[in-house]
Design a protein around this nucleic acid. Structure first.
Length: 293
DNA sequence: CCCCAGGCGGTTG
DNA sequence: CAACCGCCTGGG
């Protein structure tokens, strides 16, 4: 990896195992928009208190708008998982799937996937909202929630200033109340979101403490929240608490297990990167199904 | 009218 | 414990 600045932008070259389309469209996040044009792939959205605008003109190159090397090193390198060696991860995953053509194909298919390190609070609520819901609606609800209860974020470029919205704090969602949350069309999830906000805002649940826990304890702690079960807890653990061994089982993965592993797959024996293996399988199955349409 | 969408909580046998 | 069922809401 090589980094240099170009005007106000940061240009990163010689990146391997990194495809912004795969990374931001593999279901791990809900606040980013993708655009494809002749100049490459563009991704933009709010994260870590700023509006992030990125562009991948070709494989191995990433351009981040309005970004200094200092900011990249402080937050974005970690967020984008650019401090991680994915070739080592792939080798470890393959070592746990010996003679497995499915995983071999899945990794080839999703070779540019990386698991982001997203913000814990936002990720937790996002996956509570995701239950029994579809992706366009999940994204819409999160966007409306931020607009209604999050603080403004200004973004200026080429003399033009735009306003975006941060994800609301736990306190802001407590103040919104169950009624305010239901008004965002969250339906039966409103009381779940409120319970999470209440527990975090009043110290009943310490999210930063979860970072220090081993995965089983992290899941148990998250499931103390009403409306958080194994799937939501596993997604939060994997996508926001750096628990790479957390293996979320959703409807897509159930299909994968039935289709490719009808005699069973020992999920507890997949090693420390089981969750990343899950992402390869998840992306592969969705990609295969997209191809059929 | 039906069914489904990246689940969960509650109830039942 | 496994199997089922209802659930807000919106789209097909």
């Amino acid at each position: 990896m090589n980094i240099h600045t170009q005007g106000s932008d940061l240009v990163i070259t010689e990146i391997s195992d990194f495809d912004i389309c795969q990374i931001f469209d593999c279901g791990q996040c809900f606040r980013f928009e993708l655009i494809h044009d002749d100049s490459g792939d563009h991704v933009s959205g709010v994260a870590f208190g700023r509006y992030l605008c990125m562009h991948q003109p070709k494989s191995g190159v990433l351009i981040i708008d309005n970004c200094s090397e200092a900011e990249f090193n402080a937050t974005l390198r970690h967020f984008l998982a650019l401090d991680i060696d994915y070739s080592e991860i792939k080798n470890d995953v393959l070592a746990h799937f010996t003679n497995d053509i499915t995983m071999k194909n899945a990794i080839e298919c999703g070779k540019g996937i990386r698991i982001l390190r997203q913000e814990p609070w936002e990720t937790l609520i996002s996956f509570i909202i995701s239950q029994n819901n579809n992706i366009p609606r999940i994204k819409k609800i999160i966007s409306e929630m931020s607009k209604a209860y999050g603080h403004e974020i200004e973004y200026s470029r080429a003399g033009k200033t735009e306003i975006f919205y941060a994800f609301p704090t736990p306190e802001a969602l407590v103040n919104a109340g169950i009624e305010g949350l239901a008004a965002l069309k969250t339906g039966f999830r409103a009381k779940y979101i409120y319970d999470a906000a209440f527990k975090v805002a009043f110290g009943k649940l310490n999210l930063s403490g979860i970072n220090e826990m081993d995965t089983p304890y992290a899941l148990k702690a998250l499931m103390e929240i009403n409306g958080v079960g194994p799937k939501v807890a596993s997604c939060a653990a994997l996508f926001a608490f750096d628990k790479t061994d957390a293996f979320p089982i959703d409807v897509w993965i159930k299909r994968v297990l039935e289709k490719y592993y009808p005699t069973g797959l020992d999920i507890n024996g997949l090693g420390k990167y089981a969750g990343i293996a899950q992402q390869y399988l998840f992306y592969y199955e969705r990609y295969v199904n997209e191809g059929k349409k």
